[in-house]
Design a protein around this nucleic acid. Structure first.
Length: 588
DNA sequence: GCCGTTTTCGGCCCGACTGTTTTCAGTCG
C-alpha cells in the first residue's frame, strides 16, 4: 500500500516535480470525492501529469517566470505552484484535507470504488480507510446503501483481496512482458484468432505496468473469449461483454482482452494502446474534421462509418504519420506529427556494442571469456568489461594490481576470440563520498573506458551530491556516468540531484550519460533521457550485465530511449567499433 | 481550471460493462 502524504508533509522538504505533481494529483482526487465539477478535477490531473513528465526542474521554470508556458498550467495552478515553491506548503490543499479525509484517496485504488462511492462510504457509513471498508463489507453494511447490493459488496471484497495480493500498484516491465508474451502467444493460437497483440502501457514500454491489455482480431469474439478463459494463467472473470473480457490472473494481475473484427483492428489497437491522454488528443483532432473516433472506427456526421484494418490508416485519416506507441503520452507527439517532425527512433538493431558489463573478477557471475563469447553470440561488435573499483568491497572491487592483471587476461581473450568482437578494458569506478575517484588519474589513464558511478552515500543533500557528481563529470578521465540518479524503480528514490546542471555539464564535457537497461533501474528515466538529449548530451544504452543472460535486457533500455525520443545518432554504442575506439582515444 | 483557425465564455473524447435499476449512474480504460 502506498504511503499517504498528509497535510504538512511538504514542510521543510525540497519540493521537486514529483512532489508538486503528487500534490495536484491528490487535490484532483479530493475534489472529485468532494463532488467538484469534473473539468476542474481534470485540470488538476492534467497539470499533475505535465509537471511529472516535465524534463526541466519545475523550480527552474518557476524562477524564470515561465510556469504558465507549461501546457495545462494557467493562472490558478501557477499561483499554487508558486506558493508551494516559496513556502513548501499549500493552503488550498491543507484546507481541502480538513474538509475531506485524505485517507479516502486510498479507497480509489480498490476496483469498483470511485469518487462517488468513496464519498458515500464516508458520509453514510463513516468509512475513511481501507480497513474500515473491509470491516464494513465483511459485516454486510455496504449493501445497505441505496444502489448497492449483495454483488457490489462481493466485488469490492474481491478487489480488496486482489489489492492485498498485489502489494503494489504496478509491476516491473520485464515481469509484465514475461507474463504478457506467454498470454499473447497462446491467444494467437486460439481458433478463429487472426491477429493478437499486446496493447496498453506495456506496448508503450512504460517502466511499470498496472494491468495487461491484450487485443485479438476475430470475427467470433465470444468463442475466442471462451477459449481464452480456459488458459491456465487465468484465475477468475472480473467482467465480460461483447467486445471486452476482463480477468484476473493467479498472480493477481488484472488483464483486459478486447476482441474486434479484423476490419476494425486498426482503431481497436490504437484505442487499446492509449495513452488515454493521447487518445483524447486524437479524438479532438477527429472532431475538428467532423469525425467521431472510437475503437470501432470513425463516424461521419451523417452516421456513415469508416473502418480501419491497421493503425497507419487511423493516423492517415487524421492527417498524421503513424506515431510509434512509445511516444503516445501526449508529450508533444501529436504536434510533432502534425508538423512532420517525429524522431526516427532508435531500435534494438541499432545497438552494436555493450559498454557496461561485469565478470567474476568483481561481482559478475561468469568468466571474462564467457561474457565475451556471449556478447559475440548476441551479435555485438564490441564489449567493454567494466568491473567494480577497489573501494566497493561488497562487489569485490579490483585493487590496482588485480586491475592490471585483468588487462593481461583481457588481452589473452582478445587473442583467442579474434577480431570478430573487440573487447575493451573499462572500469566502473566509484565516485567516493567526497567526489574523488576511487583510483588515481594515472591508473584511470591506463583504461580504455572509464565509467563513474555513485553507489554509496546516495542520500547526501542536494548541493553536496550534485557537486560530487559534477566533479566526476569534469574529471578528464571519466567517459561515462552509469545509472546517474541511483534510483530503483518502485523501491528507491533517485538521489536529490540538480539534473539540469548534470546535463549541462555532461554536454559541455561530452561525458556520456548511460541509460541503464536493467528493469530495476531504467536510469536515466525516459523523462531525464529526453531532457539530456535536448541539452546536447551523448547517451548510451547499457545492460550492466552481470551474467550473459542479462544482455537481452538491452530491449528495456531501448524502450526507455524510444520513450525519450532518442535517435541512434545520440547513442554511442550504436556507433561502429572504430568510431567508438577513436572517440575514446581522442578523449585520452 | 484551462483554453481559443467557429469562442475571452462556453465548451472540454468516447464507449463498454456492471449492478441496480425501470431508465441510469458509476467505474474504467
Amino acid at each position: 500500500m502506498r504511503e499517504g502524504i498528509h497535510a504538512g508533509f511538504l514542510g521543510g522538504m525540497d519540493v521537486n516535480n514529483r512532489e508538486v505533481a503528487e500534490v495536484f494529483q491528490r487535490i484532483a482526487d479530493l475534489l472529485e470525492i468532494k463532488g467538484e465539477e469534473i473539468y476542474r478535477v481534470l485540470a488538476y490531473r492534467r497539470a499533475s501529469d505535465t509537471v511529472r513528465s516535465l524534463g526541466e526542474s519545475i523550480e527552474a521554470v518557476w524562477r524564470d517566470g515561465r510556469l504558465e508556458e507549461i501546457p495545462g498550467v494557467g493562472k490558478a495552478i501557477s499561483g499554487k505552484i508558486d506558493e508551494l515553491l516559496r513556502t513548501g506548503r499549500l493552503e488550498f490543499y491543507e484546507k481541502l484535507t480538513t474538509e475531506i479525509p485524505p485517507s479516502l484517496i486510498d479507497l480509489l485504488h480498490v476496483g469498483d470504488v470511485g469518487p462517488k462511492k468513496a464519498a458515500r462510504f464516508w458520509k453514510e457509513l463513516g468509512i475513511t480507510s481501507l480497513d474500515d471498508l473491509e470491516a464494513a463489507a465483511k459485516a454486510g453494511r455496504l449493501k445497505s446503501l441505496r444502489g448497492m447490493g449483495e454483488r457490489s459488496e462481493k466485488r469490492i471484497l474481491e478487489s480488496l483481496e486482489a489489492l492485498k495480493l498485489r502489494q503494489t500498484d504496478r509491476i516491473l516491465i520485464n515481469q509484465a512482458w514475461e507474463i504478457a508474451a506467454d498470454l499473447v502467444a497462446s491467444l494467437g493460437k486460439l481458433p478463429g484468432v487472426e491477429k493478437a497483440e499486446v496493447a496498453g502501457s506495456l506496448r508503450r514500454w512504460r517502466e511499470t505496468v498496472g494491468d495487461l491489455d491484450l487485443i485479438a482480431a476475430s470475427s467470433d469474439a465470444s468463442s475466442v473469449m471462451n477459449a481464452f478463459l480456459s488458459l491456465p494463467q487465468i484465475s477468475r472473470i472480473v467482467g465480460r461483454g461483447e467486445t471486452k473480457l476482463s480477468v484476473e490472473l493467479h498472480n493477481g494481475l488484472r488483464t483486459q482482452l478486447w476482441v474486434h473484427p479484423p476490419s476494425h483492428f486498426g482503431t481497436a489497437l490504437q484505442y487499446a494502446t492509449g495513452s488515454q491522454a493521447h487518445n483524447v488528443r486524437l479524438r479532438e483532432l477527429a472532431k475538428r474534421s467532423g469525425l467521431s473516433l472510437s475503437e470501432h472506427g470513425f463516424m461521419r456526421q451523417d452516421g456513415s462509418e469508416i473502418t480501419c484494418e491497421d493503425e497507419e490508416e487511423v493516423y492517415r485519416i487524421l492527417g498524421l504519420p503513424w506515431i510509434p506507441a512509445e511516444l503516445r503520452e501526449d508529450r508533444g507527439e501529436v504536434e510533432a506529427a502534425l508538423e512532420d517532425r517525429l524522431p526516427k527512433l532508435i531500435t534494438q538493431n541499432d545497438l552494436v556494442g555493450e559498454l557496461h558489463s561485469h565478470s567474476d573478477w568483481s561481482d559478475g557471475s561468469c568468466t571474462l571469456e564467457e561474457m565475451v563469447r556471449a556478447a559475440q553470440a548476441f551479435g555485438l561488435q564490441y564489449l567493454a568489461i567494466t568491473d567494480h573499483s577497489q573501494s566497493l568491497g561488497v562487489a569485490r572491487g579490483l585493487d590496482v594490481d588485480r586491475l592490471r592483471q585483468q588487462r593481461e587476461a583481457i588481452n589473452e581473450i582478445q587473442q583467442a576470440v579474434g577480431d570478430d568482437i573487440r573487447v575493451l578494458q573499462g572500469i566502473e569506478v566509484e565516485i567516493l563520498a567526497d567526489g574523488r575517484m576511487d583510483y588515481s588519474d594515472e591508473v584511470l589513464s591506463e583504461l580504455d573506458l572509464v565509467i563513474a558511478s555513485l553507489h554509496t552515500s546516495l542520500r547526501q543533500p542536494r548541493h553536496i551530491i550534485t557537486a560530487r557528481l559534477l566533479k566526476a563529470i569534469r574529471n578528464p578521465h571519466v567517459d561515462m556516468i552509469a545509472h546517474p540518479t541511483g534510483r530503483l524503480v518502485g523501491s528507491r528514490d533517485p538521489a536529490d540531484l540538480d539534473m539540469e546542471a548534470i546535463f549541462e555539464t555532461a554536454a559541455e564535457h561530452q561525458v556520456v550519460l548511460s541509460i541503464n537497461a536493467s528493469p530495476e533501474r531504467l536510469d536515466l528515466s525516459d523523462v531525464h533521457a529526453r531532457r539530456a538529449m535536448e541539452l546536447g548530451c551523448l547517451l548510451a544504452v547499457n545492460t550492466d550485465a552481470h551474467h550473459p543472460e542479462h544482455l537481452v535486457l538491452q530491449q528495456y533500455g531501448v524502450g526507455v530511449a524510444r520513450r525519450a525520443w532518442v535517435e541512434s545518432g545520440s547513442v554511442i554504442n550504436c556507433w561502429p567499433y572504430d568510431r567508438v575506439h577513436q572517440w575514446l582515444r581522442a578523449r585520452g
